[in-house]
């Protein structure tokens, strides 16, 4: 897709009118993700229930349209998913921007699949993956800077 079309059809909407931008009350986990090469900076907040289902999520911060839109699309996908499913989405998204995903994997990413062309632009891959990597650090590695599930080394 021509890049201006990608912006017009998908990215601008998620960047200018994001569904999940803001703060939530009593998140389970909060984590700051930064992309030093362009100053993208997001705070991802997730709420998980006792069965490790992501029941809600939001992000805050500033950055380029690709980073913001990608985080918003990610939350569209993972809210309502289990922790394992959310991490599987992240794996598929990472494969997609590394050009190693199967067509089925890409299709399963729904709107986020529109960012496939980013794989040809190494300079933008970091923008597109910022939210996803932050989510991986939270759900896979247990990193958190606040919320009711603070990571504190075994307590």
């Amino acid at each position: 897709m021509e890049l201006k079309n990608l912006y017009r059809e998908i990215v601008n909407e998620h960047n200018l009118h994001p569904t999940h931008k803001g703060d939530m009350e009593s998140p389970s986990m909060i984590l700051n993700g930064v992309n030093p090469s362009c100053g993208d900076d997001i705070y991802l907040q997730l709420k998980l229930d006792e069965n490790d289902i992501v029941t809600d999520g939001c992000f805050n911060g500033s950055g380029c349209a690709i980073s913001q839109a990608s985080a918003d699309m990610m939350l569209d996908l993972i809210i309502g998913s289990s922790k394992e499913e959310a991490l599987a989405y992240a794996e598929r998204f990472m494969n997609m921007v590394r050009s190693t995903a199967t067509p089925e994997e890409i299709e399963s990413l729904d709107e986020a699949a529109s960012l496939e062309d980013i794989s040809h632009m190494p300079a933008r891959v970091k923008c597109a993956t910022l939210g996803w990597k932050t989510m991986q650090r939270m759900l896979r590695d247990g990193e958190s800077e606040g919320g009711s599930r603070q990571s504190c080394g075994g307590c």
Binding site: S37, C38, G39, G63, C64
Partner: peptide, 26 residues
């Protein structure tokens, strides 16, 4: 309202090359 990376990306569609970012001068 426009991040420099997005500016550069859409200008690229017009076959215009400009740099965007911190220019190794953080």
């Amino acid at each position: 309202g426009c991040h420099p990376h997005d500016i550069s990306t859409v200008l690229d569609d017009e076959h215009i090359a400009v740099r965007a970012g911190h220019h190794c001068a953080q």
